[in-house]
Simulated assay, not measured.
Amino acid sequence: MADSCFVDIREPDGSTRRIASSSRGGAILHVSSESVAEPLTATVMRIGQPRLEPSVLAVPLVTQAGITGVLTWLASRDRPFFGVQELELAQHVARRCALAIDNSRLYREARTAVSIRDEFLSVAAHELKTPMTSLRGYAQLLAREFDKGQVANPERARRAATTIQVQSDKLARLVAQLLDVSRIQSGKLAIERKPSDLSGLVREVVDAARTQLREHTIVARLPSELWVPIDPLRIEQVVTNLIDNAIKYSPDGGQIDVMLACDADDQTVKLAVRDRGVGVPVEHRANIFDRFYQAHAGGALTSMAGMGLGLYISRQIIELHGGTIRAEFPDDGGTCIVITLPR
């Protein structure tokens, strides 16, 4: 069909890169072929339509993602000029190549999806098993106490009942996160806004967290009240997650700061939760709001890494409110999560 052929692809930044070329040994190309080929290839890459010159033939590689590249053929001096028949054959070859590219991409995406699924199932099974093991153990302990006809050790029974309550709450949160992810993926996660005292809501979450702290101190800087149109249940979920993370990832204790205030323009409010814990490794910072992403997986904090859903769900909730959420990393260590919400 031709004496020389090359394949150019479009890079993500819009530039063109030649990934393959081949020529028939001893073939002497038309001088016009070499001068016409490059601009012709660029034109086909831009407009996505084939171009036919007497000694040059260029057809686009059109995949599901759009114009992916160009196949270009050159004729030698001793070969007849290209015609309609060669054009049809070239288009057929290009369609086959484009189909192969699409299949390769789909296969790669499927493998990635399977890998994410398997990793998620492994993490979810571990996270769900942990509270279930505690629930079972302490339930058995209580059962033995009651089998004696009376509670022989009231203090131990009280601790067992408290642990059951805490682990039940953790299990309920894990299940709720899984349901939220399902709603997000199906576009059914909804919020119900109503005027709410955000300051009072944050204060309640902080007070609840303080009752379970031993080595941490929460310093809250909150106005007496701050009314904002929000979904209070969903925002409470976000604030609880941020404070839980701050506690979890500062295992040596220390101060946790919670700050809420209006911006200078009085059009937005800013909520910040800052810890002085282990922080986030630099290479993981860009991905901490991604679904199933665990910045500390594989390290010393693997056992407390969770399912990688808390920040992902929090981002979705905040964005549904028309707000933003971002992470800052102070020079003296730790992490600060900053939320802005419209008033």
Rank of each mutant, 00 (worst) to 15 (best):
Q267N: 12
V280S: 03
S4Y: 12
R105Q: 12
R108P: 00
P251R: 07
A305N: 11
R17Y: 13
L301Y: 10
I191K: 01
S303G: 15
Q212L: 13
S21H: 14
Q267I: 08
A100K: 07
N103P: 00
Q49G: 00
V84W: 10
I317A: 02
A98D: 01
E319G: 03
G149F: 05
L178Q: 14
E204R: 12
I230Q: 05
G69V: 03
G306C: 05
R234E: 10
E88I: 02
P223I: 15
R183V: 02
R158H: 10
Y138D: 09
L179T: 13
G308F: 04
A272Q: 07
R183H: 11
S122Q: 15
I47T: 14
R183E: 15
A160S: 13
R117W: 12
A27Q: 06
I218Y: 06
E11V: 01
I313P: 07
L106C: 12
W227C: 03
L141F: 11
R46H: 10
H296Q: 13
Q85N: 15
V219R: 14
G187A: 06
I184P: 03
T43D: 06
D147S: 14
L87F: 01
L29R: 04
R18D: 06
A157S: 08
F146N: 01
L198G: 09
T240Q: 08
R46K: 11
L189T: 05
E34A: 09
S23V: 09
I243G: 02
V7F: 05
M259L: 11
R291A: 12
Q150P: 00
V59Y: 03
L271K: 05
A100D: 08
A176V: 04
V238F: 01
D244Y: 01
L29E: 04
I164P: 00
L309W: 04
A98P: 03
K270P: 00
V278R: 04
Y138F: 13
R183P: 00
Q316Y: 14
I67H: 13
R159P: 02
R203P: 04
S4W: 07
C336R: 09
I243V: 13
